[in-house]
Design a binder for these strands. Structure first.
Length: 562
RNA sequence: UGGGGCGUCGCCAAAUGGUAAGGCAGCGGCCUUUGGAGCCGCCAUUUGCAGGUUCGAAUCCUGCCGCCCCAACCA
């Protein structure tokens, strides 16, 4: 368990923590994951969740979940629920330590008053436009607010008035008195409280003023006894402010320490909440959990195992450099986990009828198939076989190229777990399209092995036509048609990169009957085709399958080369 | 432009002054009742560039170059 923490050096954050422990700066470790409930969690959040949770576990510390709900205009209970479900799904347990920044509103208000008393904060009547005018630029200092010199009494009274609803939104704000000449922009007398006229998802209309992130975050960390406040790299510039509030308010040591790391991006998708929201609201997808989305909810629905996400995060590591992971690396981890765990079944996506002419008419027979070749412990099952079967249209070529090992006229091929068969006749309709194949089978090859030891290169999957159950199969592909969806001509946005073929729905797909009794949450492989999971809409009598990811397809590469 | 962060293979990443790990992708081959999986091999004479220090530098110093972040009453 403590491997990462004690064995190797670990990432730079774990190194810092180990040093803090060794130096006696901390007796125990406490981390937190602080999402704002204004959207669904996506793959980019997974690193932060696993980092915070993993560190707590490895160092015997605690991991809190804290909703940073300081902006009621943007936040919603729906997201509070979804975020918890997603974190639980990832396997990260906050063990009941569920907090909301809004829980601390009374205390934060008191801290703000204390700042006023210490002449470190003042009520400012400047509008945001006026503030903008005085903010200065990257190279020039800003100008001080004319309200910066108000007395403690006046500030206290004014702030109390704001709290009691005597100011409209935008009329007044509470600002920290720091330094308008600072080259660190967040230090230029930042607003720390503003009036918001909106219903808060937890506190309703109780508050008229809400703290800003910079003020609320460090203090919430301190209140919870967080030792290491891990956040993403764009907050580096805010660290002086984080420390400033804690110092001004004389919070006891050891104070929480902010450490930044880089989140990762992933190719072939967009990841900002704003863009994901647009996809949902403008109907490019069917919802936050549409399996084409990069949200955790979507991955869950698509059948991605949470273990794959954990492994990906570990593989990518924790650093401070900006990174964009190729989708292939993500897919690799998904396949790696699924290869070990997924049950195998057979299903024929694009069926072509095959009649085995020398096979007896009737009910056919039951053949043995292995449930998971990676794990014999998962046993075997019976698969019905009969005179009429479906095979994949792609598995037949009337005039095959050199390296095509599947079915073609006169060539012997193996039906997985069944028999060696040879195509004897190609039946076509009036337009010349192949509509049926006639074959003969070798009765001596039951199970797929020839007693005379002859080699058969190709093995294809099949489903007995009279025994088949049918399913709806949803084949998901990349939502976008390029690695960087934002790489579009001027005047266009990422909607121009949408892949029109990102979803293909197949109906009446014949699958082997055993699939209907597979466990509800099971991940499974349709042999030679890909990994799938049941959609939540799926019912035993109306199966709906989502393709999680396809199998690696080296034949596609060979075929492409000609 | 002031401040800050970051530059090691196509994409990630290790290295903590001792002579450039590993993964993904790619490319060859073996094996295979999934063209899956597995196995073997190839894939950075060099770490953004230029100098310097040192017996020795991706690591230390100096100077350049490039990319990214910051001017919400968002987080």
């Amino acid at each position: 368990m403590a491997d990462d923490a004690t064995a190797g050096r670990g990432d730079f954050i774990r190194q810092i923590i180990r040093e803090d422990l060794e130096a006696g700066r901390h007796q125990r470790i406490a981390t937190r994951f602080p999402p704002e409930p204004n959207g669904y969690l996506h793959i980019g959040h997974a690193t932060a969740i696993h980092l915070n949770h993993g560190i707590a576990q490895e160092f015997g510390g605690t991991f809190n979940l804290r909703f940073d709900d300081t902006n009621p205009a943007a936040e919603d209970e729906e997201f509070v629920e979804s975020i918890q479900a997603d974190i639980r799904w990832l396997g990260c347990d906050w063990e009941g330590r569920l907090h909301f920044t809004s829980d601390y509103f009374p205390q934060l208000y008191e801290y703000a008053c204390e700042l006023i008393r210490r002449e470190k904060a003042f009520v400012c009547d400047l509008s945001s436009e006026e503030m903008f005018e005085r903010r200065g630029t990257l190279t020039e200092a800003g100008g001080e607010s004319p309200f910066r010199g108000r007395s403690v009494e006046e500030n206290l009274a004014l702030f109390a008035g704001m709290k009691n609803g005597e100011s409209k939104a935008g009329e007044r704000s509470l600002r920290a008195r720091i330094d308008m000449g600072s080259s660190v922009l967040p230090m230029r007398d930042p607003v720390i409280y503003r009036v918001v006229e909106a219903n808060h998802h937890r506190t309703g209309a109780e508050w008229c003023v809400y703290p800003m992130y910079d003020f609320a975050h460090c203090l919430s960390d301190a209140i919870e006894g967080i030792t290491h406040s891990l956040c993403s790299i764009e907050f580096v510039d805010h660290r002086p402010l984080y420390d400033w509030f804690l110092e001004q308010l004389d919070l006891p040591e050891p104070r929480p320490r902010q450490i930044e790391f880089a989140k990762f991006f992933i190719t072939d998708t967009v990841l900002s909440k704003r863009n994901l929201r647009r996809l949902v609201e403008e109907g490019a997808v069917e919802g936050w959990d549409d399996p084409r989305m990069p949200t955790l909810a979507a991955f869950r629905r698509r059948g991605v195992p949470p273990k794959a996400i954990e492994n990906l995060c570990r593989d990518v590591g924790i650093t401070r450099s900006a990174k964009t992971i190729q989708l292939a690396q993500f897919d690799h981890h998904v396949r790696a986990v699924l290869n070990e765990e997924a049950l195998r079944f057979m299903g024929v996506l694009r069926p072509l009828k095959v009649v085995i002419e020398n096979y007896p008419e009737g009910d056919g027979e039951q053949l043995d198939a292995v449930n998971n070749p990676q794990d014999p412990g998962q046993g075997t099952r019976k698969v019905p076989f009969s005179r009429e079967i479906w095979i994949e249209r792609d598995d037949f070529l009337e005039d095959p190229p050199k390296k095509f090992f599947r079915m073609s006229p006169g060539r012997e091929v193996r039906l997985r777990y069944a028999y060696l068969v040879t195509c004897t006749e190609v039946v076509k309709d009036a337009s010349g399209e192949v509509v049926e194949l006639r074959c003969t089978y070798d009765p001596e090859t039951r199970g797929g092995d020839a007693p005379d030891g002859r080699k058969v290169k190709g093995t294809i999957h099949w489903v007995s036509a009279p025994h088949a159950t049918t399913a709806e199969v949803r084949l998901y592909d990349h939502l976008f048609d390029r690695e960087d969806p934002n790489d579009v001509p001027d005047g266009q946005d990422f909607f121009a990169s949408l892949n029109p073929d990102s979803l293909e729905t197949l109906h009446d797909v014949p699958v082997e009957p055993a699939l209907a009794s597979a466990p509800e949450g099971a991940a499974f492989q349709l042999e030679r085709t890909g990994y799938f999971a049941f959609d939540p809409e799926s019912k035993p009598e109306a199966l709906v399958l989502n393709r999680t990811v396809g199998l690696r397809d080296t034949w596609a590469k060979v075929a492409k080369k000609g």
